[in-house]
Computed example of a mutant assay.
Amino acid sequence: MQLDLYRVFYVTAMEKNFSKAAKKLYITQPSVSHAIKQLEESLGIQLFVRTSKGVTMTHEGETLFGYISPAFGLIDNAERKISEIKSLKCGHVTIGGSDSTCKHFLLPHIQTFQDMFPEIQIKLQHGSTPKILDKLTKGLIDIGVIHLPIDHSQITLTEFLSISSTFIVGEKYKNLANNHLSLEEMLNYPIISFSETSSSRRFLNQLFQKQGLNVKPDIEVGSVELLIECAKIGMGIAFVTKELVLKELSEGELFEVCLNEKIENRKIGLITRKEIPLSVAANKFIKHLVEISH
């Protein structure tokens, strides 16, 4: 209650008029007069002197105003900042994902988001799925973008994209694109894949295991770019996300190996911390991603 009285005093001192103060505070003029009287009685001093144009502060009133003005100024600034955050005139979002995910699936959408909300700062952090999960649970990122499936009790999951996987070769093994191969026949050729800790590698292992086969890639790489280059120069058959090599396939730099069986599509999901609300900016960004993907 006392803080409310000081707020009435502060606004009245700024406006130098009871009527104007009442209008700004959304209360009646008698309520302003009553609040000032209460504060004066509580402090045992007179704070204002009435004039023909309004009110002026007494010496004691000016002293009190000098002390409380910075506090209410900070509150006013805080309210303005919150208003800017709500209207997306400021804020930041930190997103984590693998290098290829960020480059191929996130950057185009980040650009369209920043075109709409240029004041929002977007930060990117890269890493493997375990690292992204660790960063998320520690509060170092707001949103993680990872390959599914994932089972983690502390996260909320939203499906983002559906992607397809395929095997590709360069000119050296171009003949494999003309024939339908089984997974077992494919083991007769060098296999290029990501490292064993990657979600892509786990998916590859599961694909062969369903046929009772065990795959041991001859070449392991750490980036999509290196995997593509290895395939181009004829080092073997590379397992890759098809959407990442559409350009090379259309231009005849790479060739898709035909399999006897269909490879199920994979999912990319957006993860956030469970029971921890997103900031206004982060919530708007994740809605932007979901809307675009659908």
Rank of each mutant, 00 (worst) to 15 (best):
P149D: 05
F113G: 05
L107D: 02
T101P: 00
F117Y: 15
A71E: 05
D134H: 11
A71V: 14
D99H: 06
D76W: 03
L133I: 13
I155S: 06
K86A: 14
L88Q: 08
K86I: 13
K123E: 11
S100Q: 03
H147R: 06
I110H: 02
I155M: 13
I120C: 03
F105V: 04
P118Q: 04
I85G: 10
D115K: 15
L124G: 03
D99N: 11
D134V: 10
P108H: 06
V93S: 05
C102I: 15
H126W: 12
L133R: 05
T94I: 14
H104A: 09
T129N: 01
H126Y: 11
T101Q: 01
I132G: 06
G139Y: 08
E79I: 08
P108M: 02
A78E: 05
T94A: 12
L136Y: 14
L140A: 14
G96R: 02
G96P: 07
I85N: 12
N77T: 11
E119A: 15
T156D: 12
D115F: 13
F105A: 01
R80M: 11
H104W: 10
I68G: 09
K135G: 14
I68D: 01
S128H: 08
S153Y: 07
D151K: 12
H109W: 09
G127H: 04
I141V: 05
A71K: 06
T112S: 15
D134G: 08
I120Q: 07
D99I: 13
F117G: 09
L107Q: 08
Q111F: 08
H109R: 08
G96E: 00
F105N: 00
L124P: 01
E84T: 08
D99K: 09
H109V: 08
S153H: 12
H92F: 07
L140C: 11
Q125M: 14
L133C: 05
F105Y: 03
K86L: 14
K89G: 12
I143P: 00
N77G: 07
G91P: 00
H147G: 15
C90Q: 13
K86Y: 07
I68M: 02
I120Y: 09
D76P: 04
D134W: 05
G144F: 07
E84A: 11
E84V: 04
A78I: 04
S83G: 15
K138Q: 13
H92G: 06
I75Y: 09
I143S: 00
H152Q: 01
E84W: 10
H152V: 04
V145Y: 05
G144D: 05
D99F: 13
T94H: 06
S153F: 12
Q111P: 00
H92C: 06
I141Q: 00
F113I: 08
S153P: 12
